[in-house]
Amino acid sequence: MSLKINILKLLEQSRDKYISGEDMAFNFNVSRAAVNKAVNSLREEGHLIESVTKKGYRLLSESDVLSVEGILPYLRDDYRGNIYVFDTVESTNKTAKEIAMEGNEDGSVIVANGQTKGRGRQNRSFYSPKDTGVYMSYILRPQDDANIYNVVTVAACIAVCRAIYKLTGIECGIKWVNDIFLNGKKICGILTEGSFDLENGRINLVIIGIGINVSTKDFPEDLEAVAGSISNSNDVFVSRNRLVAEVLNELQSLITPESLKEKKFIQEYREMSIVVGRDVEILVGENRKKAHVIDIDDNGGLVVRCEDGKVESLNYGEISLRWNS
């Protein structure tokens, strides 16, 4: 591990606290000049490092460069999996699939500072500018052959809402099935994808893609009215490194084989829903119909009553919802 990475890790672990250059030099068995050179290199990469005579160096709380070293201090001790951080990728889901194909990688996560071809459901693009969001994809190797796409998406929604609440005290809402809303605007989208073993028909890989607008301000014109971000909605600073870590902490506790089987978290999802009890318009292919949302079923399906009185349970991937005017 390079000196620069070791110093960054130390500063992240002691964020807002001063560490003397002399102590760093002693701990890493290098010269003070080497420490100063490494710190300057970190500053050039965008890390906000303050230096004060007779006190030393400290990483400021508002420093927000995504890094493995910045994520690790906030992860639970029992976290499993590797962490890959990239400046820019086409799509974290695409990169996750490529990495997963090279090995098992269960529990690993791909994090990017920006995406050039971010995707949402139904192959829509997901706006992913650099430096203002969290774009991450989690690799899951299911131990069960059940169709878990819906409940995994439900679990991911809950994980994001819990993480945001823990860091800010802000309560978000969930628009079925995969969108997180705050103050009437979408701040997060989740895309769950997977693959099957053709020989036995079992799911052998699930990729959970999560895109969160943390401080994004300048949205394209077609998104201005519907997209928002955590910081812009409430004027709070959110560390992206810590947000990634907290989402991972919550996600791993929710997607254990036991948790996915019991699905106790469905009730929490119901309570966070912003569509239950609402009149909505359902779009299936080119067909539209109006309905009233009654409930979320135990598999994460949307239970609706159609205009003809028929009650249906709608599954993930088959519909999209449109608010009535």
Score class of each variant (00 low, 15 high):
43 R>M: 13
46 G>L: 01
47 H>S: 04
49 I>V: 02
50 E>P: 00
50 E>G: 03
51 S>C: 00
54 K>A: 06
56 G>I: 05
57 Y>W: 06
62 E>L: 00
65 V>T: 13
68 V>G: 00
68 V>E: 13
69 E>V: 03
72 L>Q: 13
72 L>K: 15
72 L>M: 08
73 P>S: 08
73 P>I: 10
74 Y>E: 03
74 Y>N: 12
75 L>I: 13
76 R>C: 00
77 D>Y: 04
77 D>L: 04
77 D>K: 12
79 Y>S: 11
80 R>Q: 12
82 N>S: 14
84 Y>R: 07
86 F>D: 05
87 D>A: 02
89 V>E: 07
91 S>L: 07
93 N>Y: 11
94 K>C: 00
95 T>N: 01
95 T>H: 01
96 A>E: 11
96 A>M: 10
100 A>W: 13
101 M>Y: 12
106 D>Q: 05
109 V>P: 05
112 A>C: 03
112 A>T: 10
114 G>A: 14
117 K>A: 15
121 R>L: 06
123 N>M: 14
127 Y>W: 15
131 D>K: 04
134 V>Y: 01
138 Y>H: 12
139 I>V: 15
143 Q>K: 15
144 D>K: 09
146 A>I: 09
147 N>L: 13
148 I>Q: 15
150 N>P: 09
150 N>M: 10
152 V>F: 04
153 T>H: 02
154 V>Y: 07
155 A>S: 08
156 A>K: 09
166 K>G: 06
167 L>N: 08
171 E>Q: 08
172 C>A: 13
